[in-house]
Each structure stands twice: as structure tokens, then as C-alpha cells.
Simulated scan of single mutants.
Amino acid sequence: MPVPSPSRRGLLLAAGAALGAWSLTGCGVRWVAGEEPTPTAAAGPDDDARTRAVAETRDLLGLALPAAAAAAPLQQAASALVQTCTAHLRALGADAEEAVTATVTATATTGATTGATAADPAALLSRLATTAASALATATATGAGRTGAGTARLLASIAASRALLLDGLATATALPAPPVPAPTTSSSSPAGSPTAGPADEAGTAALQRALAGEHAAVHAYGLVTGRAGPERRAEAAADLDAHRVARDDLVDLLLARGAAPVEAAAGYDVEAATPQAAAALAAAVEERLAGVHADVVAASAPDRAAAAAALLRAARAARRWGSAVTAFPGMAELGEDGTALPRPSATTTSTATSTATGAP
């Protein structure tokens, strides 16, 4: 039986329930983690990328609001999507309140005339997959379309967030999840050439931190595999293999840059006495890895595609193991509502990674 199109009042109620106590007053603050090109009169790649991301997010809202007015379990998954879209709009610098209000009005008006705004979870799944792929492509664009570091990092995080929402919606509706194509992961770093210049040095340093995180992950997953419940040991073993591959790939990349890859620590003071503790350790490891790979997206333009793909994998793995991060995987400085969190006192991402994995 088809789901009836919700009224404007129903959509407003759904939007209000989904957004909860979040404040929607005022415009968003354009989030930039790191320098961007000097603004000019003409729109540049960063402006174009953010404009496109805002349009795609509002498009997702148009599909999510009718679903948020539907019955459970679709309602719960769609409400999470509405919340996250609003957070993304804030981080992108858009007026979140105006976007939700305009989307509610447009959706209700369209439904009144065409009846085409009933909840459509299959269409929502498809749009999540395509917009996640679009954000990944924009974040990793090369040549004239290359964005600044802050925009690339934010868009890679938004892409990972949409993949998490896709997974959650597919589970809630028992529908197949469309794939999110990974960006092309070939690096343009010249093989065998040493680093040269501050940009290359920053990229190499970020890659070293990512490698340190993968070393720690290999150690941690060895423990997780032994401590996880029987039903999750194969999953943990598969993740362990994936991190070994990621570690080896980073070693090869650093050697190609002429850098000496950082070695694993002599030991890691980490414990996971129960299956629950093992799952929590795995989730923490993946959350921190999402952060170091997001740093590579920002710091090393030639390696953005590989780092964005690694961020996507880490975010999905973190969710499988129990992480609650949805809106901004890899961006610990942003809250789930899209506003900046207080900065920790001189704590680097690599230090956080060591803490999460028990490194000394």
C-alpha cells in the first residue's frame, strides 16, 4: 500500500522531532580546518564545491523529511538523516533553519500537487550513495577543480557520514545498500623522489602519523581477535588483515617519497578483558584512524584519494564496532550538530591515536 504524502504540518512536526533541541537560529559558520586560497571576486573551486555540497544536502532533506514522518523503523533512520543534513549545512556555512523551512514548504507544495512526496526509502538509499560518491569526487579532484585543504577534509568527512547513514537506513529497511564507489587511489607522488618544500614535508608527516596509527591498529586488532566473542572473531580477523594491508601500503608510499617509514612501537599498553571491551577498543581505534586519514586528505593533495578511501573504511568499521560518530567522522573538532567543540589543550591527532590504542 502506498504511503500517503504528508502535509506541511506533518513535515514540520517531523522536522522538529528529528532536530530535537538543536538550535537552528542564525546562519551556519563556514568551517575551514586549515588555510584556503585567498578569496577573489570570482568563485573558485572551494566556493563551487561548497555550493554543490549544500545543494546536494538540501536535496537529501527533501527525501528525508517525508520518511521522518513515516512509521518506525524508517522514521528513526530518516530522523537521524535530517539531523545530520542540518549539521552538514551548518558546517558548510549555509543557513540551516532557512534550508529546513524552505525544504518543508517545497516538499509539501509538491506533494499537494503531484502526490510525489511519499516516503521512498529506495530512492533515499540511492541518493545517499550518489551524493556520498559526489562528495568524495569533489574532495579528491585534481587540476583546476582541486579544493583547499579545509574544504577537501570536510567533504571527505561528509562523504563518510553519508555512507554511515546509508548503512543505517539499509539495515532499518532491510533493503540492499547501493555501493559507494571509492575514489581512484593512485598517488601522484613521484616514486623515489625525496620530499621537497613545506607542503611535501607536511604531507609526509601526516602519512607518518597515519602509518603510526595503522601500526597501533594491527597490534590492537590482534588483541581484539583473541578477545572478541566467537560470533565476531572472523570479522575482527578480516579487519586485522585490512590494517596490515593499509600499513604495508603506507610503508611503500613513504619509501617512494624517500622517507624512512616510522616503525611500530616496542609495546602497547592496552587491555580488552571482555568481548565488550574488545569491541570498544576496535571502535576507538577506527575513530582515531579516521582522524589521521582525514589529516592526510588535508595535508597531502597527491594522496587525497587514498586517504579519503581510508577515512571511509575507518568510519564504517568504527560504526560496526559501536561508534556513535555519525555527522563528521575524522573531525573530532566538530560536534554532531555541526558546531565547533572546545579545542583540547595541545593534543595532536597522533597522540590521541596512541591513547586510544594504548600506545606508550
Score class of each variant (00 low, 15 high):
Ala273Glu: 14
Ala290Met: 04
Ser188Val: 03
Met331Ser: 07
Leu254Ser: 00
Gly226Glu: 12
Gly226Val: 06
Gly145Ile: 00
Gly226Met: 03
Gly335Leu: 02
Arg227Pro: 00
Thr151His: 01
Thr171Gly: 06
Leu211Ala: 00
Arg153Thr: 12
Ala317Leu: 11
Pro2Leu: 12
Pro66Ala: 05
Gly192His: 10
Ala346Asp: 14
Thr114Met: 07
Leu334Asp: 05
Thr274Asn: 08
Thr38Gln: 08
Thr84Leu: 08
Arg127Thr: 15
Ala310Phe: 04
Pro66Asp: 10
Thr349Ser: 04
Glu286Trp: 12
Ile158Ala: 05
Arg244Gln: 15
Thr38Pro: 01
Ala133Asp: 12
Glu56Met: 02
Arg320Ser: 11
Asp249Asn: 11
Val82Ala: 06
Leu250Asp: 03
Thr57Trp: 00
Leu223Val: 09
Ala340Arg: 14
Glu336Gln: 12
Ala309Cys: 01
Ala278Tyr: 12
Ala135Thr: 13
Ala272Asn: 01
Gln76Asn: 06
Gly213Pro: 03
Ala137Glu: 14
Pro342Asp: 11
Ala69Phe: 11
Thr101Cys: 01
Leu240Cys: 02
Ala135Val: 08
Ala259Phe: 02
Arg244Ser: 03
Val224Gln: 07
Ala298Leu: 02
Thr131Asn: 10
Ala137Pro: 03
Gln75Thr: 14
Ala80Thr: 14
Ala135Phe: 14
Ala216Gly: 13
Glu97Tyr: 05
Ser134Phe: 11
Ala112Val: 06
Gly16Tyr: 10
Leu312Cys: 00
Thr114Val: 00
Ala284Leu: 00
Ala294Asp: 06
Leu175Tyr: 11
Ala139Val: 10
Thr353Lys: 00
Leu12Gly: 11
Gly145Ala: 15
Ala108Ile: 09
Leu11Glu: 03
Pro261Met: 00
Gly62Leu: 02
Pro73Met: 13
Leu128Cys: 08
Arg30Asp: 09
Asp200His: 09
Thr84Gly: 06
Ala294Thr: 03
Thr171His: 13
Asp59Thr: 13
Thr185His: 01
Thr51Trp: 01
Ala156Val: 09
Gly143Arg: 10
Ala307His: 08
Ala17Gly: 11
Phe328Tyr: 07
Ala234Ile: 14
Gly34Arg: 00
Glu271His: 12
Asp46His: 07
Ser193Arg: 14
Ala182Ser: 14
Ala259Ser: 08
Arg288Thr: 13
Ala160Gly: 09
Asp248Tyr: 10
Ala294Phe: 07
Ala273Thr: 12
Ala135His: 15
Thr25Leu: 13
Ala220Gln: 01
Ala122Met: 09
Pro37Tyr: 04
Gly10Gln: 15
Ala91Ile: 02
Arg162Pro: 00
Leu207Met: 09
Thr171Arg: 15
Ala237Lys: 08
Val180Cys: 02
Ala324His: 10
Thr109Arg: 15
Leu281Asp: 01
Thr225Lys: 05
Ala108Tyr: 08
Val32Cys: 02
Ala273Val: 13
Leu89Arg: 04
Leu312Tyr: 04
Ala256Asn: 13
Gly197Phe: 05
Asp252Glu: 14
Cys85Thr: 10
